[in-house]
Amino acid sequence: MNSLYMPKDSLIHSLDPRTKMIFVIFVVISSFILNDPALQLLLLVALFPLVLLAKVVKPYLVSIQFLLLFAVLIMTVHGIYNPIGVTPVFEIFGGLTFKYESMVYASVMSFRILVIGTAAVLFVMTTHPSDMASALVKWKVPHSFAFILLSTFQIIPIIAREAKIVMEAQQARCLDVKGSIIQRVKNLVPMFAPLFIITFMKVHQLSYVLECRAFSRKGTKTSLRETRIGSLDYSFLIGMLAILAFEIYVKLFAMGSLHLTTDALLTYSLIGTWIVFGFMIVKFLYKQLQGKIGGAN
C-alpha cells in the first residue's frame, strides 16, 4: 500500500489536484476567518457531504479518531479551567463549572482542528501522490522539490514495514519489548539504530536508481499521469470563491458572527464529543476483550 491514497471512482477523485490543493488552503483560511463556534460547526458539517461523495467514509472516520481525542481534551479542559471564562453555563460534580467564554474558545479551537483535519484527510485520500507532484510541477515548483514531497509520502509505509522487521529481529535476540518504561526507552536504541541505517541505505540506493534514469537531466519533463482542469474544477473554484466572499462579508460587516451560538449549542457539542469518545473507548475495550478471549482458545 502506498500512502493513504484510496483509489476510488468518484467526483472528488476526478478533480484536478490543484483544485483540491486550493480547496485545502481555502478551508484553512476559512477556519481562521470564522471565529464563531456555530459557523465552524457549519463548515465541518458542510464538509461531510464531500467525504460521502468521495466514498471514503470509513477510512476517514478511522483517521479522524485521533483528532477527536484532541477535541475532547481541549473542550473539556479548556471549558473548565481556561481563565477567560466568567459566565457559568452548567455545573458538573465537584463544583466544576463550564463557562461560556472558555467554551466558545475551546469549541472554536477543536472545530478548527477537525475542519482542517477533515480537509487534509480528504485531500490525501483522494489524490494520488504522483498527481500531486505533477500538479506542483505545473505550478512551477522545481521538479526535484516535488519529488521530495512525493517520495516522503511513499517512504512512510516502507519505513513502517522495516520497523516491524527490525522489532522482530531484535525480539529474536531476546529483547524484551514489554518491559518497564525505562526498559522501553532503552529499547529505542536497538530499534532506531538499524532503522536509521537501513533508511539511509535505501535513500542512497534510490538516488543511484534515479540517476540511472536521468533524473537530473536539464529541461522540461513530461508526466505519465496528465491532469487537466475542467468545468467541474471551475464550478468548484467559483463555489469556494463565493463562500469566501460571504465569510469576508460576515467578518467585516457582522462582527464575524451571525449570533447563532447559544449555550445549548455549546453544551450539545461538548456532550456530543463525549458520546463519540465514549463509543471509541467501548470499541477499544471490546477489541481488547476479544483479543484476550481469542488468546485463551
Binding site: I165, V166, A169, A172, V189, A193, P194, I197, I198
Partner: peptide
C-alpha cells in the same frame, strides 16, 4: 537469523 543482517546489527 533474519535474512538481512542490517535489520539487527547496531
Amino acid at each position: 537469523v533474519f535474512q538481512n543482517p542490517n535489520h539487527q546489527t547496531f
